[in-house]
Computed example of a mutant assay.
Amino acid sequence: MKAHTKETQATMTPEKSLQFLKEGNIRFQNNLKANRNLLEQVNDTKEGQFPFATILSCIDSRVSAELVFDQGLGDIFSVRIAGNFVNEDILGSMEFACKLAGTKLIVVLGHTSCGAVKGACDHAEMGNLTKLIEKINPAVQAVTEPADESQRNSKNLEFVDSVSKKNVELTIDRIHAESPILSEMEQNGEIKIIGAMYDITSGAVAFYE
């Protein structure tokens, strides 16, 4: 499988880009890799890159976007930060990826049993991590069930995963609210912004459509 070129990127639509990721994740779940020569892709991309998707995911070592979607060099922009939230630097990176570099799809990818979300559920405090966790607190507060405080912590994995899903949704809301460039591109049908959740027990990605 060759790296994407300017010509192949131009044929991609938001819907086709999403389909590529879905098919890649199915290959990953079935331990089937697309036939690609990574060193050949290094050579193919030496004069430019033409990715079709931008994926914001957690730094979790089990959730590498290139692996779970079975993509090669030059296929995706991968943004990783604990808790997969956005700030102005990440929004700027996404604007570059879509407006200047031509990607057609933004995926905000959360995952089950997320450590950063667990920290937010437990109101953990430790150095700079305290400030990071504050970014996830709105998702904790937005999940109203269970109401019993004794159940609203990292030991309740159902609650943790509900917060992870809400965090993805709020992150997408922030992209729309804080990036007029990306919001306008989506309204014009140039890109699609979508949330998804990776299951660390199965390797499956569920998209929120």
Rank of each mutant, 00 (worst) to 15 (best):
A3H: 04
N167S: 14
T103V: 15
I194L: 07
A53C: 11
A206M: 09
K2T: 00
N43Y: 07
N30R: 13
F77K: 07
A124S: 15
A10L: 08
T5E: 10
E178L: 05
D70F: 09
E184M: 05
K99A: 14
V143I: 15
E158D: 14
D173Q: 15
T112G: 02
C121T: 13
D75S: 13
I175E: 03
I55C: 05
N188M: 06
G127H: 09
K104G: 05
E169Q: 15
A34L: 10
F77G: 03
A196M: 04
E209W: 02
N84A: 13
K6I: 11
I90Q: 04
C58P: 03
A204H: 10
G48A: 14
K6V: 07
E95C: 06
L67G: 01
E178Q: 08
A196F: 01
A139W: 04
V63G: 08
M12G: 04
A142E: 13
G24L: 07
L18V: 03
N156R: 03
V140C: 05
K165Q: 12
A196L: 05
C58M: 07
Y198K: 09
R62A: 07
K6N: 10
F159H: 01
L132D: 02
L91Q: 02
G92F: 02
D122Q: 10
D148L: 13
V140F: 10
V168F: 02
D173C: 02
K192R: 11
L170D: 04
I200F: 03
E134R: 14
E134F: 03
Q9N: 03
F50W: 15
N137D: 13
G74A: 14
S202H: 04
G110H: 12
N31Y: 12
I55N: 06
A142H: 11
E158C: 00
D161Y: 00
R62Y: 01
A142R: 12
A82Q: 06
L182F: 03
G115P: 09
S202G: 02
A65M: 07
G110F: 09
D44P: 00
L32I: 14
K2V: 03
L32V: 15
K16V: 12
V68C: 08
D89E: 13
K118M: 15
T130D: 04
K46T: 12
I81C: 03
N188F: 00
I181M: 13
A206Y: 01
H123S: 12
A101I: 00
I194R: 02
V68D: 07
G115Y: 03
S57Y: 00
Q19N: 05
G203F: 07
Y198W: 11
T13G: 06
C114R: 05
F69I: 11
E184V: 01
L56N: 10
G102I: 07
E209T: 11
M126E: 13
T103H: 08
L38D: 13
D122V: 03
R27F: 04
T45G: 08
E145G: 02
Y208L: 14
R174F: 00
T130P: 06
